[in-house]
């Protein structure tokens, strides 16, 4: 056990935790926009999977990781629009339609992978960009400031999102639509347009999250996300619908995962416990949810389709 507390292992654990948190963070931030405006999107995992395959395939064929991310954006945008159409225009039951999108994404990504690629071929990952100066700080520098641009960008999105939601007109519209769409509608805010925008943002971020996951892992396989998309949705609740809280949740999950990984590699967790250890992140998330759920209220109009009463 004392092996774990050596400097090298601790650095690797924290750095790994940050890296593992990124796809979750991106997807959860996207979902936060949507949920804040009243739309529950459970199809996030499906979008992530399709974005992951798109990114993976692009890097495989074209060799450019950034193009892979762009493809992730595109796929996420298309699926985001589709989700918005189903949830906002058609007013379908949001929880269930989300599961439908998930099943579609799970099946389609696997189908495309089997048909277009076949055997898992490794691809290159994001290059690490050490921040000048900051990365030379002993210990902390290696933990925090030697990541890829994707990691930095993802965490930058947190204060940006906080600003957008709390201090812009668009953000105010989002919050109004999520709390009381009838009132927002009466003041002239287009509920549908706001929700389309937020769901689109959610889709794009989910697509990017998937692509980032695949490229970071350097591989693709069936169900690559392993239901992390659903964890991302749970993280929105955990973070009380605030970007900062969501970031905390993503880091918690990532750290637990990373620590468990390190403990397994060191042999501190024996093989026979491996499956139980795999439960740890999910269990901790559930516990955290239970603790947080009592104190924070959800957007009042969450998961209720809006129909203008005439």
């Amino acid at each position: 056990m004392s092996q774990f507390f050596s400097q090298a292992i601790l650095i690797a654990a924290v750095a790994g935790g940050i890296r593992l948190a990124v796809p979750l963070l991106l997807a959860a931030l996207g979902e936060t926009y949507g949920q804040r405006s009243g739309v529950l999107n459970l199809g996030v995992d499906g979008v992530m999977l399709l974005g992951a395959f798109g990114g993976y395939f692009t890097v495989l064929e074209l060799g450019n990781v950034w193009l892979g991310l762009v493809v992730g954006v595109g796929i996420g945008a298309i699926l985001g629009l589709a989700t918005a159409f189903i949830s906002v225009t058609l007013g379908a039951e949001q929880g269930i339609s989300g599961i439908g999108v998930y099943l579609f994404g799970l099946g389609m990504s696997d189908l495309l992978f089997q048909k277009l690629v076949g055997t898992p071929l490794p691809i290159e990952s994001f290059p690490k960009v050490p921040l000048p100066g900051l990365s030379s700080i002993p210990v902390v520098g290696e933990m925090l400031f030697q990541h890829s641009l994707v990691v930095y960008a993802a965490f930058l999105l947190v204060p940006i999102s906080t600003f957008v939601i709390n201090r812009t007109t668009f953000g105010m519209n989002i919050r109004a639509v999520g709390e009381n769409p009838e009132a927002a509608d009466s003041v002239g805010i287009s509920v549908a347009r706001v929700r389309y925008a937020t769901v689109l943002i959610g889709g794009i971020l989910a697509g990017v999250a998937g692509a980032a996951l695949a490229i970071d892992l350097g591989i693709f396989q069936q169900n690559l996300t392993n239901a992390q998309g659903f964890i991302a949705v749970a993280l929105v609740y955990f973070g009380a619908w605030r970007p900062l809280g969501v970031m905390g949740g993503a880091l918690l999950y990532g750290m637990v995962n990373s620590i468990v990984l390190q403990l397994k590699t060191l042999g501190i967790i024996p093989r026979s416990w491996s499956d139980i250890a795999a439960m740890a992140p999910a269990v901790i998330t559930i516990l955290a949810l239970v603790l947080v759920a009592r104190r924070f209220r959800q957007p009042a109009a969450l998961a209720k389709p809006f129909v203008r009463e005439t």
Partner: peptide, 10 residues
């Protein structure tokens, strides 16, 4: 089939 299932749900 999995993908089709999803579409059916939607």
């Amino acid at each position: 089939i999995l993908a089709l299932n999803g579409l059916v749900v939607v």
